[in-house]
Every structure is written in C-alpha cells, then in structure tokens.
C-alpha cells in the first residue's frame, strides 16, 4: 500500500498539484472541493430540515431538484477529492480519520437513496413517514460528520 501511495504522490500531476505556485493548481481544486461540499451537504441539510418538519407548507415535490445538486456536488468532490488525495497520498493514506470520512460519505450516499425515492414518489406531498424523518435527521448528522472529518484531517498527523 505504501508503494502505491508513493507512486500516486510522485505522479507528475500530483507533484504539479502540491508544488506549483499557480492559483490554478492546488488552490483552485481546494476551492472547487468547498463548492462541492456546499452543494452536497447544503442540499442534504435543506432536504433534511424540510423532511424533519421545517417549512411544512413547501411541497416536497418542488424540491426534487435539490438531489441533482446533491449528486453534482458528490461527483465534483469525487474528482477534486481524488486530486487532493493524490497530492498528499503518503500522508493522508495513513490517516484513520481519512478512512472514517470515506465510510461516512458511503453511509451518507446509502441513506440518500431511500430518502430520494420517497421525495420522488407521488406520496411525498401527503405525509412523511417516521422512517424517512429518521433517515433525514441521520443524513444531517452524517454530512456534518463528513465535514468535521475533512477539517480534522488538516490538523492531525496520525
């Protein structure tokens, strides 16, 4: 595994990412990663709050487009996150918190599937079942956890 991390970090692209002074290198990718975070976590928060019961008069069928933002953010961050990882693979690849972040993202995506299925269904403008409410609350907690893990990664060395 160490050999793989070293290989990844020593690719010309990874070296350009970590060593270039250009604003188009590491800073741009970092910025795009923040926008992706805002898209994914932001839409998960808004949909989650609405399902928990905030602003009940807003028809759920009218916020279905938030799931497109959710996935747009996810794919943007899959790409930018891979770039950021490549630039620091030898360090990040050994961080437990990095793997915790990946696990949390996987759970967040899994939770979003039944939530989206409900919001996309014809039943969504009637009442929200308890199971969906629980999953919505859970998704708010999980995406907060993903953000926390991502931030902590910048500060820990193990």
């Amino acid at each position: 595994m160490d050999a793989y991390f070293d290989w990844l970090q020593n690719l010309p692209f990874s070296i350009w990412m970590s060593e270039s002074d250009s604003l188009w290198a590491y800073p741009l990718i970092l910025f795009l990663h923040s926008v992706g975070m805002g898209l994914t976590a932001g839409s998960a928060f808004v949909v989650g709050l609405r399902l928990i019961g905030v602003g009940n008069s807003l028809p759920l069928s009218s916020i279905r487009f938030m799931f497109r933002l959710f996935w747009a953010g996810f794919f943007l961050n899959l790409v930018t996150g891979s770039f950021l990882f490549a630039a620091a693979a030898s360090k990040d690849g050994h961080l437990a918190i990095y793997y915790a972040k990946l696990v949390l993202i996987a759970i967040g995506i899994l939770v979003s599937v039944p939530v989206r299925r409900f919001v996309d269904s014809d039943a969504s403008d009637r009442f929200v079942p308890g199971r969906i409410r629980t999953l919505a609350a859970l998704s708010v907690v999980i995406w907060t956890g993903v953000i926390t893990a991502g931030r902590v990664m910048a500060y820990v060395s193990l």
Partner: peptide, 28 residues
C-alpha cells in the same frame, strides 16, 4: 468545522431560493 457547516447550510438555502427565482425549477 462550524464555519464549513454554516457555509453549507447558508449555501443550501441560497441555492434553493435563488434557483427557484431563476427558474431552474418553478415547482415551488
């Protein structure tokens, strides 16, 4: 971390409201 959570919350609501006004979706 709190600053990033606040960012996401604000950005999510900003997108919901402004994309509706822009007409990306007019369902609401």
């Amino acid at each position: 971390t709190l600053h990033f959570v606040g960012l996401s919350l604000l950005f999510g609501v900003v997108l919901l409201g402004n994309l509706r006004i822009l007409g990306v979706t007019r369902a609401a």
